[in-house]
């Protein structure tokens, strides 16, 4: 229990990951699936940034030419997650575009209805 209290960000991130994962897998509505995907990605970003955060230290911005590496949090995870956000945005964009196309072609965005339609 103490471990959970000490690392509540990580625990929250894993729970969010599970929620997003299950929504992505089990829901039939495309929009809900996309929301689930975003929750999943965001939870990973949270986990990653919490790895790089050091309590009591500042954001790594140089002010007035002052350089002291010990005063800053680890900037690499934030930088990596910026890339991760770009990737997530592009995947979400493509998914939404595909959902529009799906609605045009099938007239619904519920995947179970689409799977039940007889395809020739």
């Amino acid at each position: 229990m103490l471990m959970v209290q000490n690392s509540y960000i990580e625990v929250g991130a894993i729970i969010l990951f599970g929620i997003g994962f299950m929504i992505l897998l089990l829901n039939n509505n495309m929009i809900k699936k996309i929301i689930g995907m975003n929750i999943m990605d965001t939870s990973i970003f949270l986990l990653f940034i919490s790895i790089g955060y050091i309590h009591g230290k500042e954001a790594p911005i140089i002010v007035d030419g002052e350089i002291n590496a010990m005063g800053y949090v680890n900037p690499i995870p934030s930088g990596l997650m910026l890339t991760g956000i770009v990737v997530a945005v592009s995947v979400t964009g493509l998914m939404l575009a595909l959902t529009i196309k799906l609605y045009e072609k099938y007239g619904t965005i519920e995947l179970d209805e689409i799977m039940n339609m007889r395809s020739d």
Partner: peptide, 8 residues
């Protein structure tokens, strides 16, 4: 390059 933010 000197503050939070950037191209994206």
């Amino acid at each position: 390059h000197v503050s939070p933010g950037g191209g994206f």
